[in-house]
């Protein structure tokens, strides 16, 4: 009889140990097997991802890059994080922000190659208002999204959940727009 109890206790202990290991593996993603490398929307992006944010240069003539590391579980949340970093502004003294600080992200969603970035309407009132400043604002967001997330072909900007012709009266944003990396050189 003693032998049976001993064997039972051994199996119990082994089961508890196995459960503990499993829980540990779940809590510490670095240790366990790598998640499947899915690329589709909603795929896990547990690995930290380096992105290039598109800010403006000090003179407001061109877009300029600054790197950030993102960790977000999905494409939409990664875009959300990248745009939040854009709003927070550049760390380098030599760069200039492109979005007023008080602007907030209402939502980000992705469908059929188009990322919809919905910002609060105070972007219109708080924007300084020049044509080129507005162009840099629009394409700082669009480039940051299209150039860092290959799933995204175009970005539709929304204000307060609605499409608008322009942000501040100049640049056409009425439709989903592709990126313009030429703006890094100050060219349209």
């Amino acid at each position: 009889m003693k032998k049976v109890v001993k064997a039972f206790l051994f199996i119990l202990a082994a089961a508890v140990l196995a459960a503990a290991v499993l829980v540990l593996l779940k809590l510490m993603p670095g240790i366990g097997p790598a998640p499947p490398a899915g690329k589709g929307p909603g795929a896990a992006l547990d690995e930290p991802k380096m992105v290039d944010l598109y800010f403006a240069d000090a003179d407001g003539r061109r877009l300029a890059l600054e790197a950030r590391e993102l960790t977000a579980p999905s494409l939409e949340e990664s875009i959300h994080q990248a745009v939040r970093e854009l709003i927070a502004g550049p760390r380098k003294e030599s760069l200039s922000p492109t979005i007023p600080e008080s602007v907030e992200i209402r939502s980000v969603y992705f469908r059929d190659g188009i990322a919809y970035v919905d910002l609060t309407p105070n972007l219109s009132d708080k924007h300084p208002g020049g044509s080129w400043a507005e162009l840099l604002t629009v394409y700082s967001i669009i480039n940051t999204v299209t150039e860092n997330f290959s799933e995204v072909n175009r970005v539709q900007l929304l204000l307060g959940g609605r499409e608008h012709d322009t942000l501040a009266g100049h640049i056409d944003i009425s439709r989903p727009l592709p990126g313009r990396v030429q703006l890094l050189a100050g060219d349209w």
């Binding site: 200039s96 922000p97 020049g130």
Partner: peptide
Amino acid sequence: VHANAAFRKTVQGYETYYLSFSASDLEAS
């Protein structure tokens, strides 16, 4: 006729614009 503005107060000067065309915009949407 417009007056300009930038995020930084030091920016100054004159700009004149004409329309750009982006065929991809016409096509895609």
